[in-house]
Design a protein around this nucleic acid. Structure first.
Lengths: 198, 198
DNA sequence: TGAGCAGTATGATTTGAATCATACTATCTT
DNA sequence: AAGATAGTATGATTCAAATCATACTGCTCA
């Protein structure tokens, strides 16, 4: 879900450029803005004491992120880091709330987005709880296929690294590599020159 | 978050009694209703092929559940099962949508609820991904404390069984029992006659 | 075109949660 | 009050993912 850039600008939003690797906001800090990605790629991520990352969501252009504080007045639940040079746009929360009040259809779209994100978490959690790497990876890839995210719709090539899959499933990269090889041997997916085709 | 019973009734909602163990709705089935628990207890749960349960949320009186289909037109993401004889109330989706349209403040409250639930999933997922039973259990108990759920606010006694904690963290009940004993030995919590005090 | 680096892949070992089995305790029901 | 059952607890074993180490391949950049 995205809010049309022209609408955001009309309500006072401002662009911001971020460099690859730059932290847009930190988990645990307060927020006063609505964030939307214009171009580039951002990962919405938790980092533990050992520096290990858990990627909650990979944000793509036109998608919003870091919206929790706007609705529950709590700090950020995860950090946002740019995977590549990116452009984001942000709107102050008071303007954002007013925008929703004056545009109920937009509010419904937003509610739909939160629901889709919550459903995704239900899906991933039930798989993680099964302690079955193949199930977790399979479920994640199926989700990407259905939502047309992170997979090339023309050639079905997975656009993510094994490490990113590992970071989204709580598994180790070695486990993801071996599990995907196994899935290839079963015919569940194809691997050519290291590239995965679902 | 709850919608006042009188409002629900005024908009055409109807009560329904469910017996302990009764399945209110099944994962994967379609829905046309908004559900709210009036009395009793319900668990919102995924059940895998081996019959193992993953409890996504324990629903308490005045809380709604099964709301995803209302906003994203997809089937139920988990099943709802009554833990004890309960009373629920439900409103047809079209009336529910109209109720929100005519009451923007209610819609905002609902958005806040979804956000809180999403934040809880972010929290549990990042802990599960760390493969650290003590961290997962500790985080869950802290969450219950903060939200005053499942813990007696007068004596701090945990109202859930070890099995329920296991079902909410993806761990085995033996692991939860041993980990809680370990946490007791560290002074992180107290156990008296099998009862846990946080 | 070649060097360097990111990403993929393989092998060996460790380890802790799962698994299986069984006993004990608290609670409920008659 | 006693029997039955749910829940807690303990002990032993298994095993698959984590961990550690190292090699190979594809891609980027000069």
């Amino acid at each position: 879900m995205q809010i049309n850039i022209d609408i955001l600008l009309a309500w006072g939003a401002a662009y911001k450029k971020v460099a690859a690797g730059e932290i847009i906001f930190h988990e645990g800090t307060e927020s006063s803005f609505y964030y939307q990605l214009v171009s580039g790629k951002v990962r919405w991520v938790n980092i533990n004491d050992q520096g290990k990352e858990f990627i909650q969501t990979i944000i793509e252009p036109e998608e919003c992120f870091g919206e929790f504080p706007l609705f529950d007045d709590e700090p950020f639940a995860a950090s946002a880091i740019a995977d590549e040079d990116s452009v984001i746009i942000r709107l102050h929360r008071s303007s954002f709330h007013q925008l929703l009040r004056e545009n109920p259809e937009l509010h419904f779209e937003f509610t739909r987005l939160l629901t889709q994100r919550l459903r995704f978490k239900f899906l991933i959690l039930k798989e993680l709880a099964n302690h079955n790497p193949e199930g977790s990876i399979s479920t994640l890839l199926n989700y990407f296929k259905q939502t047309q995210k992170n997979i090339c719709t023309k050639c079905n090539r997975l656009k993510l690294t094994r490490q990113q899959i590992a970071d989204m499933t709580g598994l180790r990269v070695e486990t993801v590599i071996r599990t995907m090889k196994f899935m290839q041997s079963k015919g569940d997916l194809q691997i050519t020159k290291g590239k995965v085709y679902c």
